[in-house]
């Protein structure tokens, strides 16, 4: 039974991983840039939500749109001022610009907020629903539901809106898109802002069960990369599958291995997938 329980928990947590990682894969899919600073936007989302909870009395999950908006605005500026300059540069410059951004954001947060751990208290924090002999943790369920709603909204946006189609066109062929009258620079800004906004949104919804501190991004960075590599870098559908898979892998390894080795299993899965199928499990070869 604990086996099924672990899979259930893993799927719920994995849904959030999916949304966090869709942001990363979206940026790569549209611009071909791996954003090593992506996890820092998760941290920013968590902080925005925490402050909204502490000072405005807002539930952290309801503050998620606010987290999204703050990260979106920040991402817009970062793309316009920094990333846009290395779009055609060597991959060395691309990788290390985002690494620099990661260092700046993490230490900026350390400077602004201090190194203490912050958490929220919510009335539903310890609640769970019973389903036969299974338990569904309410904070996990809420986070999952919010992620699902966010994912559906993104899907709808990308499929039906003009902006969504223009962005996909830019991803496929920037030159052709530009010739069709699409402002590709604007699309890149939109993609980056949307990507980091989604990750920040995920940061807010996990706040009821994850503690926030400036280095929290480090705990998620390999996890996010594992999700997108499992699904195939650049594939949004793949990120959903990858997110659920990583959630389940984590929950199951917690069942069989001591807590210190939990991440090790994830790293090994990551390396094996990279070595065997770098195009991802669902991606076409």
């Amino acid at each position: 039974m604990s086996f099924i329980q672990a899979i259930l928990d893993g799927l719920l947590v994995g849904g959030v991983y999916a949304v966090i990682s869709i942001g990363l894969t979206l940026v790569y899919g549209v611009m071909g840039i791996v954003n090593f600073a992506q996890a820092e936007f998760l941290m920013i989302g968590m902080f925005v939500s925490w402050f909204a909870w502490a000072y405005l009395g807002l539930d952290p999950v309801l503050a998620a749109p606010l987290s999204f908006a703050v990260a979106f605005a920040l991402g817009w500026v970062v793309q316009g001022q920094l990333i846009s300059r290395v779009l055609k540069a060597l991959s060395v410059a691309q990788i290390f610009l985002t690494v620099g951004l990661m260092i700046v954001l993490e230490n900026g947060a350390l400077l602004a907020f201090g190194s203490q751990f912050r958490s929220v208290t919510t009335p539903y924090q310890t609640m769970s629903l019973s389903l036969g002999s299974l338990f569904i943790s309410v904070p996990y369920l809420i986070a999952f539901a919010m992620s699902l709603a966010c994912g559906v909204a993104l899907w709808w946006f990308m499929r039906t809106s003009w902006f969504g189609r223009a962005m996909r066109a830019t991803a496929q062929n920037p030159m052709a898109a530009q010739l069709m009258g699409i402002d590709t620079a604007l699309m890149y800004k939109l993609a980056f802002a949307l990507g980091v906004g989604l990750t920040a949104f995920g940061g807010a919804v996990v706040l009821p069960y994850v503690t926030v501190f400036p280095q929290v991004g480090g705990q998620f960075v390999v996890l996010m990369f594992t999700v997108v590599v499992l699904g195939g870098l650049g594939s949004v559908a793949g990120a959903v599958v990858g997110g659920l898979a990583v959630g389940v892998i984590q929950a199951l390894s917690a069942l069989f291995f001591p807590i210190q080795l939990q991440n090790l299993v994830l790293f090994l899965v990551f390396i094996v997938v990279l070595a065997v199928r770098p195009q991802g499990l669902v991606g076409a070869s």
Binding site: L82, F96, L97, V99, G100, L101, M102, I103, V104, E106, N107, G108, A109, L110, L111, P214
Partner: peptide
């Protein structure tokens, strides 16, 4: 964090 912050800025 300040020294690392400046380091990151120099890098960028």
């Amino acid at each position: 964090g300040l020294s690392q912050l400046i380091f990151g800025v120099i890098l960028i």
